[in-house]
Write a protein that binds this DNA or RNA. Sequence first.
DNA 1: GGGTACACGTGATGC
DNA 2: TGCATCACGTGTACC
Lengths: 192, 192
Amino acid sequence: MGVVCGERKNRVKKVEGQPSKNLMAERRRRKRLNDRLSMLRSIVPKISKMDRTSILGDTIDYMKELLERINKLKEDELDVGTNQMNLVGMLKELKPNEVLGEKFPQGMFDVERRNIDTRIEICCAAKPGLLLTTVNTLEALGLEIQQCVISCFNDFSMQASCSEVGEQQTGISCEDIKQALFRNAGYGGRCL
Amino acid sequence: MGVVCGERKNRVKKVEGQPSKNLMAERRRRKRLNDRLSMLRSIVPKISKMDRTSILGDTIDYMKELLERINKLKEDELDVGTNQMNLVGMLKELKPNEVLGEKFPQGMFDVERRNIDTRIEICCAAKPGLLLTTVNTLEALGLEIQQCVISCFNDFSMQASCSEVGEQQTGISCEDIKQALFRNAGYGGRCL
DNA sequence: GGGTACACGTGATGC
DNA sequence: TGCATCACGTGTACC
């Protein structure tokens, strides 16, 4: 139990000069450890008790909480990320004309029928009066614009859903409409 | 120097039964502390050394890193949040007609000049042929549409930037354009 | 061998 | 008083 007498002095006599150095080193070590502990205590916001054990325990809890918050934030960012992708996709779908030049040097004209609707999609180079003549052409073909989104900045883009008016139901084909719009836009009589 | 003999026993004789209990308590305490330290070491991913001091130091660094990551994520979320707000704002600006009914029962017609541009903003109830007549009206007034976004779903919305053509510069006032568009949309001769 | 880090038992202190 | 925690000096193992 640590109670020893004479013979022990002989055992440790050769390290007589050492203890003081070891003592100082141990003191420095304890100081470093306590400093780190103080830093930890100053960083962790929720300290239940000033115990060394409690400090470490609270630190562990706090780190777990931080990790959870990071996971939550990452999930949220993923969500809004996809949402933003959707919005960007919508905008791109709305006006794909900004990248028209490389993809459709001759413009893009698409007409198709869905039930009673005639869906028209145009994307071509803009020029003065094109909007007016296009709307005029559609009316002349007996197509009434029900819903549409039009934008003309660098290019002219139009997406419209039309219904046929008057008695001339099915009197005109999608291809005819397409050719009429194509010519109206100033291109030749043939399109891709 | 820790080397003591008989007389020391006498000094602590009154607490003879105590040391063993304190000893066990101290052992338990040390064990708890080491357990927490092990948990910390298992949680923190980057452990430079197995030192107690290093473990605490690495824990501190890791916590700071986690806090930075949280701040980064929060900033990002704020950014995409505002970006999304911008996009939503753009879309709302593009077609505020969806909420037209409550806000502008008589439609909204705005015309103003900016340098050589005439900016027109219309938001009113949709009706067949309105797009055509509106474009026609603008042309009749000597206004050539340079840039525009038009949408007609539940309501008709148009934002256009026009330039005056021909020799009739400044021959027409913003108010005149406004009244013309207002009448063209089917309303009376007066608008808000 | 000199240096470092840890575990240990112990005394002191606070509640 | 009893119980828990801490600081301390020391012994010892590892490079």
